[in-house]
Design a protein around this nucleic acid. Structure first.
Length: 295
DNA sequence: CCAGACGTTGTT
DNA sequence: GTCTGG
DNA sequence: CCAGACGTTGTT
DNA sequence: GTCTGG
């Protein structure tokens, strides 16, 4: 699944990578290495401009709240549960089918986190020997060879071969609007804009960094967790975002998992487990994880 | 007809 | 055990 | 997703 | 809002 991720890129970088035409710098969330449900996140979407007569969709970078609240929800607390949508069933679920048909987005990330609980820890917990099982967090992100957009970099003519930067992980998402009827019509927070992350079956093939991982570590993403966020490679971004696409079958084809072996994973500090911790150090590989019994 | 769900994941 | 906050 | 709370009253 | 279960 995907219940925590990192999104540290600046709005300016995202604008360049996704060829965004319209965005509000004042609304942009700052870099966040510990994005949790209910937080504000960057989203890329194609939509007619707010308050414009022109119906043409415009590529925008907008700020959404993670946890989709369906338009018909009486209270917004439903969003807490709607942080993920299964790609296999998203076209038919009551909460997701409308946004799937009309409100698709990309959620840019550096990568995401998963927690692995060792078998022995659960045993110790039920025996009352441990109050809570220890969990080893992992950070999973696109390997340097993963496809990256070839958008023109402005103001850098004849630049030398671009240094291999960390590819952006564009997660397939849906967004929705919800009206808070307890607030007056003109209230600035009268409308919520929320989103969810699509998931798919985790890969069972070797990790992109399999060679560098220690002997007892995970060999595939499925070793870490049975589900993973659905990453869209750049060749699918336009089609996924295009609101004029309404054919459910065609849209579902876009949700076939990306080529295998694009992602790498490594253990990170348990600092990430507490949402109050933040910073680039959360992504750092643990030199000596205690994982002998994990896999 | 009305009431109630509407979601995903992991665990035993 | 279950809900809330982040 | 994980961590942390889970409650009320009166007093300074 | 819309579907399912009873």
């Amino acid at each position: 699944m995907c219940g925590r991720y990192a999104a540290s890129r600046s709005a300016e970088d995202l604008v360049r990578l996704f060829e965004v035409e319209k965005w509000e710098p004042a609304e942009a969330p700052g870099p966040d290495w510990n994005v949790a449900p209910t937080k504000q996140v960057h989203a890329v979407l194609d939509r007619p401009l707010k308050g414009s007569d022109d119906p043409r969709p415009v590529r925008q970078l907008r700020t959404l709240k993670w946890g989709l609240v369906p338009g018909w929800a009486k209270t917004p607390d439903m969003g807490v549960k709607m942080i993920n949508a299964r790609a296999e069933t998203v076209h038919e679920k009551p909460a997701y089918r409308r946004p799937f048909a009309a409100r698709r987005c990309l959620l840019p990330a550096d990568g995401y986190y998963e927690w692995v609980t060792a078998q022995g820890e659960l045993k110790l917990e039920q025996e009352g020997k441990r109050k809570r099982p220890r969990k080893q967090p992992y950070f999973i992100s696109p390997a340097p060879h993963a496809p990256t957009p070839h958008a023109p970099t402005p103001h850098v003519p004849a630049s030398p071969a671009p240094e291999q930067e960390q590819p952006v992980m564009a997660m397939a998402g849906l967004y929705e609007f919800w009206r808070d009827k307890t607030l007056p019509d003109d209230h600035p927070q009268g409308w919520w804009a929320t989103c969810t992350v699509l998931t798919t079956a985790a890969e069972t093939t070797p990790l992109a960094n399999a060679d560098e991982q220690s002997e007892g570590g995970p060999r595939s993403l499925a070793d870490i967790h049975p589900r993973m966020p659905l990453m869209l490679t750049p060749d699918r971004w336009d089609a996924w975002l295009d609101p004029s696409r309404t054919d459910s079958g065609e849209l579902r084809e876009l949700l076939t998992p990306p080529p295998e072996g694009l992602l790498r994973a490594w253990p990170v500090s348990t600092d990430v487990s507490n949402v109050r911790n933040n910073g680039p150090h959360l992504l750092k590989e643990l030199p000596a994880p205690e994982e002998e019994t994990l896999f």
